[in-house]
Structure formats: C-alpha cells, structure tokens
C-alpha cells in the first residue's frame, strides 16, 4: 500500500472503526456515507494532497474506493504539474 493509499485509509478508518477497509472496497455500500462525511472527505483530499476538487470531479466513482480516490488525486496532481 503506497503513501497516498495509507493516508486515505487512515482518514476513512475514523468513520469505519470496526472495519478493515480494503483498497477496492465500495465505501458507499457500507452505509456510513452521508453528506457530512462526503464534505469532510473532499476537504481532506484537498488539504492533504494539495488539489482542488471542482464541479467536474463530482462523480461518485471518484470517491467510491480508496483506489478510486488515489486515482483522482494522481489525476489532479498530474493536471496541476
């Protein structure tokens, strides 16, 4: 698991305390995601990885799993470079 994956897992694990979240596991299927967690997740990836999530990124598939968030971060960092 790389550093980006680890940071995302660590953040999400605060909300899924009794569950060992896997990199490709659908967090929406676990039933704990609501708008408050969604806002915190967006704020987390923006601050932690120095990216800006815009309206073009509003797609559940961008946030569905740890690995999909990793791909979003990589794509945004690549675009900013």
């Amino acid at each position: 698991m790389d550093q980006t994956q680890s940071k995302i897992k660590e953040f999400l694990s605060r909300f899924f305390k009794s569950h060992d979240l896997q990199p490709d596991e659908d967090i929406f299927s676990l039933g704990f995601v609501n708008s408050l967690l969604a806002m915190q997740l967006v704020a987390f990836v923006e601050k932690e990885f120095g990216i800006s999530v815009g309206d073009e990124d509003l797609d559940l598939d961008n946030f569905r799993t740890i690995n999909s968030i990793v791909r979003l971060v990589a794509r945004k960092q690549g675009a900013a470079a």
Binding site: S35, L36, A38, M39, D55, L58, D59
Partner: peptide
C-alpha cells in the same frame, strides 16, 4: 445547473448549509 445532477444535496446544498 450548478454541480452535477444528483449532487444537489450531497455537495451543493451541503456546502451552502455549512
């Protein structure tokens, strides 16, 4: 249309209410 279809509450209105 602001945001995306289906994100009116989870993103747009939540941001406003925040």
């Amino acid at each position: 249309l602001i945001g995306k279809p289906g994100f009116g509450v989870s993103a747009v209105m939540s941001t406003a209410l925040d």
